[in-house]
Amino acid sequence: MMDWQKRLLDDFQRDFPLSPTPYQDIAERLGVTEAEVIGALSDLQDRRFVSRIGAVIPPNQIGVSTLAAMAVPEAQLPTIAEFINGFPEVNHNYEREHRLNLWFVAVASDAEHLQAVIARIERHTNFAVLQLPLLDDFFIDLGFKLDWRHV
């Protein structure tokens, strides 16, 4: 990755310009062209380094969400994970090293919709889903601090 591309990732994870031409503004700060910035972001997305240019919304501002945990036998994990991924309400789904080995986040428009999703997962898999909704958020999100020494 070129130096200006590293700076792009370092400096624009927050305070993205709210101007009519944000990519042009970024290009000027990095000393490149707008087309190069847009091209680099598109390339970084294709290489899956960048998810998107977007807004991070505090949890539970839109709709309701919960962190959920399940204890699933190792052999069934890929199939069950895939079933859970099939719900558009699920946006994160990770295997973790623990007896509770499957952790996902579900977001829905209201509590009823969310509970319907959880109930369908429990019914289909025959495993309990622990629900751990957010009570308080202490974190101030400044983006992800990248250490380029070993990239």
Binding site: S51, R52, G54, I57, I62, G63, S65, A81, E82, I84, N85, P88, E89, V90, N91, H92, N93, Y94, E95, R96, E97, H98, L100, N101, W103, F104, V107, A108, S109, H113
Partner: peptide
């Protein structure tokens, strides 16, 4: 709890269900 496999990571699809 260290993570092992990532099965899914993306932003919430707010506009679909909201």
């Amino acid at each position: 709890l260290f993570s092992r496999r990532c099965f899914k990571q993306r932003g919430a699809l707010y506009s679909q269900s909201h």
